[in-house]
Computed example of a mutant assay.
Amino acid sequence: MTRHLCTLFVAFLALALPARAFETKATHAWVYDMTTNTVLLDKAGEDSVPPASMSKLMTIEMLFEAVQDGRVQMDTTFGVSAHAVSFTAAGGSTMYLQQGDRPTVQELIHGMIINSGNDACVVVAEGLEGSEPEFARKMTERGLALGLEQSTFANASGWPDPGQRMSMKDLGLLAVHIINTYPDLYTVFGQTEFNYKNRAPANANNRNPLLKLGIGADGLKTGHTEEAGFGLVGSVKQGERRIVFAVSGMASDKERAEEAERIASWAFRQFALKTVAKQGERLAEARVFMGEAATVGLVPAQDVRLLIPAASKAGLAAEVVYTGPIKAPVAKGATLAELVITMPDMPEHRIPLVAEADVPMGGFVTRLQTAIGHLQATYLGTAPAS
């Protein structure tokens, strides 16, 4: 069996210079296009850093999971401990809970997301696992199960602690998981106002600066501590595309707002969604050994859609790679090859290609001719017929 390469040339309109790399003021950043599963920017995105309140996304995810699997309902109530209330006096973000309150799960979801309530997070931790330390241990376990490789948790709220660490990539992947897994509950992230028992001042509502810009933003979470600086996990949807990004290390809330908007603008304006190959379109052929037909067409099983840098003009470099000849019989739809696409300043894409049609085993004459051809090639140096 031999590895085969078929070089293709795919061209698009547009082009003179490759898209310029985005320069961000964030010390750590990770930008991801959910529509095409493409990482657009990774600036120290795998470094484990203090996440501040952005780590509340893990607490929120665990409560969402409990709602989804039926352990709690939206009208389930939790008690409020002195430990939970202490966060209001400490000066952190709060939904203004008091001992004796019995907030519902629905109210706590709003308090965590819209008010960024540290008290709400502690109430959830104690309500689900009995204590915040045990909940934090479960948070770390849950994070690993979700593929968050640089995340450890010491508390439910993101309060400064040496054991509270996440990477921007992990925060971005967690956001993607929440959006995909809990679409109904996710809508709360786009809401701007919540005032539990009318206790909160007007400025205690959602701090996400993107929500009021009319650019399709619908989440997710801001964060700030002295150690972490100002950060944001954002999600913006425009047309068919959705981007998610996580940034940290900005110097002020103003810089955070400006940088978040710049990132969203760059991600949508500097990349265009293109269909580079259609489902069922023959891109190449593979030789078939002992088949009724000598070759089989190689086609994508679905449309191949990629992000193309909007300012790039050289087009794409594409190769079809397979190991052959393919031994008959061949079933239609069987994966036989890969379409490998490369372009400047973008990750390589490898797309499976499948058999265009069935190729049954050849009859006696076909097999005899193939055997004779093989013997000629082996003993006489004559290339077999293809």
Rank of each mutant, 00 (worst) to 15 (best):
E281Q: 15
L17F: 12
Y186S: 06
Y182C: 03
T378E: 11
E107C: 00
R207Y: 05
V176A: 12
N203Y: 14
T366G: 09
A66C: 13
L8E: 15
S116E: 01
K212R: 12
K212N: 08
D33M: 01
G363H: 07
S131Y: 00
G143I: 03
T27P: 00
L148M: 13
A44Q: 14
F194V: 02
R142F: 01
A314T: 14
T38I: 11
V72H: 03
T187W: 05
V354N: 05
H177R: 08
R142E: 04
V299G: 01
V354H: 10
E46G: 05
Y182F: 14
V39N: 02
P329C: 15
K138W: 04
R262H: 13
R3Q: 14
S55H: 06
F64S: 07
M58P: 02
T275N: 03
E338I: 06
Y182R: 06
M34H: 03
L336S: 06
A82D: 15
Q99C: 11
V31S: 03
D184W: 02
S53I: 04
V296T: 08
F87L: 03
S167K: 07
Q302C: 13
A264W: 14
L336I: 10
N118S: 15
G163A: 08
L213E: 15
D42P: 15
A44R: 15
S81M: 06
L108R: 05
Q98M: 10
M34V: 11
V31F: 13
M250I: 00
N155I: 00
L128D: 08
L13W: 09
R367M: 11
K254G: 05
T222N: 04
R305K: 14
I215S: 08
L375H: 01
F268E: 03
A251C: 10
E132K: 06
G143T: 03
D47T: 03
H349Y: 09
C121G: 05
T7D: 11
L144I: 00
E258F: 03
F289H: 08
F12C: 12
L5N: 14
M361D: 00
R102M: 13
H374F: 12
M1V: 14
T38A: 11
P183E: 04
R256V: 05
T370M: 14
L40S: 09
F22G: 09
R287K: 10
S151E: 07
D170Y: 08
